[in-house]
């Protein structure tokens, strides 16, 4: 049996690669900057497929570029 994993959000890394600001991403996908900040810091319980799809479209990436499963220490 594999060790339990948790999901880490790598949105900030992807945004830095694409040189996208939080304000622009928020405006493009129709959510608040505050929610983008919460998402970047991983302080959310989940992300809707709709939001994830909008982020992937804008950043031209895959969900795996934004979310990563890492083993729990």
């Amino acid at each position: 049996m594999t060790a339990p994993h948790r999901i880490e959000v790598r949105l900030d890394v992807m945004m830095a690669r694409r040189k996208v600001r939080g304000r622009d991403l928020a405006a493009a996908i129709g959510i608040t900057e505050q929610n983008i900040s919460l998402l970047k810091s991983g302080k959310v319980k989940g992300i809707r497929f709709e939001t994830l799809a909008a982020i992937c479209t804008y950043l031209d990436c895959q969900p795996g570029d934004i979310l990563e499963a890492v083993p729990v220490d």
């Binding site: 959510i31 919460l38 998402l39 959310v44 319980k45 989940g46 809707r48």
Partner: peptide, 8 residues
């Protein structure tokens, strides 16, 4: 509803 609010 509270749980739903914590989804973005």
């Amino acid at each position: 509803a509270d749980e739903n609010r914590s989804f973005i």
